[in-house]
C-alpha cells in the first residue's frame, strides 16, 4: 500500500528510491541512503537528535515523510564537514568545549546550531539558549554545548577562544 518514487538530493548527491509513504525522512536517510549519522532518539518530535537541513532550514526528520521531501535538498551531519574531513567551525567548537560525551544527541545539535548561526551570526546569550531548547542532551548538562556556541560567536567577533 502507498509506494511512491522519491528523489531527494542528499549532501549534493541525488538519491532516488521507491518507498512506502509512511517511511519517515529519518528512516529514508538511515536505511535507504545508509547515512546513519542522523540519530533517532524519540521518533515523535521531542528530542531533536534527528535534525537535518531541508532546503537550508533545520527540521526534525522524524516528523516528515520521505515523500514530502521529494525535490528538496537535504543536508545531514555527514554533509557538514568539508569534503576532506576538516571539521566545520561548529563541530570544532563542540570538540574544544566538551560539547559532547556519548555523542548520541550531537548530530542534531550540530545541525541545529549550524542553521541557527547562519540566520543569526551574533546572537545574545538568551537567543542561544532559546535556540538550543529544541534539542535534548542526557549527558553534558548543556554547559559545554553553550560554551561551544559562544566560542563560535566569539570567534566571529574576533575574540580569543576562552
Amino acid at each position: 500500500m502507498g509506494e511512491t518514487t522519491v528523489n531527494v538530493t542528499v549532501n549534493g548527491r541525488s538519491c532516488e528510491a521507491v518507498v512506502e509513504a509512511r517511511l519517515t525522512l529519518a528512516d529514508f536517510l538511515r536505511e535507504t541512503c545508509h547515512l546513519t549519522g542522523t540519530h533517532l532518539g524519540c521518533e515523535h518530535g521531542v528530542c531533536g537528535a534527528c535534525t537535518v537541513l531541508v532546503d537550508g532550514a533545520a527540521v526534525r526528520s522524524c516528523l516528515m515523510f520521505a515523500v514530502q521531501a521529494g525535490g528538496t535538498e537535504v543536508t545531514t551531519i555527514e554533509g557538514i564537514a568539508a569534503p576532506d574531513g576538516e571539521l566545520s567551525t561548529v563541530q570544532a567548537a563542540f570538540r574544544d568545549c566538551h560539547g559532547l560525551q556519548c555523542g548520541y544527541c550531537t548530530p542534531g545539535f550540530i545541525v541545529s546550531v549550524t542553521a541557527f548561526l547562519e540566520d543569526n551570526p551574533s546572537p545574545t546569550d538568551q537567543e542561544i539558549r532559546e535556540a538550543l531548547s529544541g534539542n535534548l542532551c542526557r549527558c553534558t548538562g548543556y554547559q559545554g554545548i553553550l560554551n561551544a556556541v559562544h566560542q563560535v560567536t566569539g570567534a566571529a567577533r574576533g575574540e580569543e577562544p576562552a
Binding site: G45, G48, T51, V54, A57, A58, V59, R60, L63, M64, S112, F116, E130, A131, S133, G134
Partner: peptide, 12 residues
C-alpha cells in the same frame, strides 16, 4: 510566535 515550539518545529 516565538512561544510556538522550537525553531525547528516552526520551520515546518
Amino acid at each position: 510566535t516565538p512561544f510556538v515550539g522550537h525553531f525547528q518545529i516552526r520551520n515546518r
